[in-house]
């Protein structure tokens, strides 16, 4: 039996460990942190958890429409490809810090990249 990506990454405990590191990186990253200004931190951490669960290949309830709806106010603030790149970079560094193998990181990055067009409202 081969393990799913989500299982190989360590499932929900791994997501929980990653959320704290990932969200901290995002808030400290001057390229993207203005999008988080005035946002309730606990609520945002909940959203980050849902996002990480999805890109870890876990049981996710996000649809393309949700990704679009959740970010369309940010597009008005100038959200573009460079910010999605920054997210994927922070995600990769988070996983590196947690000792995840490069090969799995690439799979996570590919999943994150697959929602790029939805996030940026292309095709909506």
């Amino acid at each position: 039996m081969t393990q799913s990506l989500y299982e190989q990454l360590g499932g929900e405990p791994a997501v929980n460990a990653a959320v704290d590191i990932f969200y901290r990186k995002m808030l400290a990253d001057n390229r993207v942190n203005r999008f988080f200004e005035g946002v309730d931190m606990d609520r945002q951490a909940g959203k980050q958890k849902a996002f990480l669960t999805m890109v870890f290949g876990g049981p996710a309830n996000y649809t393309g429409k949700d990704m679009y709806e959740g970010h369309k106010h940010l597009i008005k603030m100038g959200l573009n490809d460079s910010h999605v790149d920054a997210v994927i970079e922070n995600l990769g560094n988070t996983l590196k810090e947690l000792g995840v193998k490069d090969e799995l990181i690439a799979q996570v990055a590919a999943l994150a990249n697959s929602v790029r067009d939805d996030v940026l409202g292309r095709g909506h």
């Binding site: 959320v19 704290d20 969200y23 901290r24 808030l27 400290a28 931190m41 606990d42 951490a45």
Partner: peptide
């Protein structure tokens, strides 16, 4: 301070 202590390494929980 919530934001700053989190950025300084405290876990949100």
């Amino acid at each position: 301070t919530k934001m700053k202590t989190y950025l300084a390494g405290a876990a949100l929980a």
